[in-house]
Simulated assay, not measured.
Amino acid sequence: MLDSDLAEIYGYETKNFNRQVKNNAKKFEGDEFMFLFTKTEFEEILRCKNFTSSWGGSRYTPYAFTEQGVYMLMTVLRGDLAIKVL
């Protein structure tokens, strides 16, 4: 799942969601939890109006989380929904 989708599910802004992930980077080391799309992958595969900024382009490529990564998110997020799911 993409970072923006998970942020919406758990009630975060994507920026704050990614900040929580970066603050707990050691828990997400390795490809089994998440990976960052390359610019090419993002432009060719995932391009959609939801991923463009107001100035006409995406500022950042999204993170994609594996099933294990989604579970790991529940251990670092502080929101009510994440706590209930855990």
Rank of each mutant, 00 (worst) to 15 (best):
E8C: 05
M34Y: 04
S53G: 14
V76A: 10
K84I: 14
L81E: 13
E32C: 12
T14L: 04
Y63E: 02
E29A: 09
T38E: 09
D31S: 14
T14A: 09
E44M: 11
Q68S: 14
Y60N: 07
R47D: 15
F33W: 13
I45C: 07
L6H: 00
V70Y: 10
E67N: 14
M1I: 15
D31A: 12
T66A: 02
Q20A: 09
T40P: 02
A25Q: 15
M72F: 05
N23K: 13
S4E: 07
R59N: 07
A7N: 01
E44S: 12
Y60H: 13
N24M: 06
G11C: 05
F51R: 03
L77V: 02
L2N: 05
T40C: 10
F35A: 05
G57V: 09
Q20K: 08
F42W: 11
T14G: 03
S54Q: 15
E13P: 01
Q68Y: 12
L46C: 13
D31N: 13
R59A: 11
T52N: 15
I83E: 06
T66I: 06
F28I: 07
N50Y: 15
G79I: 02
S4V: 03
Q68T: 10
S4H: 05
N24T: 09
E43V: 01
R78V: 08
I45Q: 06
I45D: 06
N18A: 08
F17V: 03
R59Y: 11
N18D: 05
K84F: 12
T14W: 02
G56V: 15
I83C: 06
T38A: 10
L2Y: 05
N16D: 13
F37V: 12
L73Q: 03
V85I: 12
F51L: 05
A7M: 02
R19F: 13
M34C: 14
E41F: 02
V85K: 01
Y12A: 00
G79T: 06
G30M: 11
I83F: 06
D80R: 08
D5I: 07
G57S: 12
K26V: 13
T61A: 07
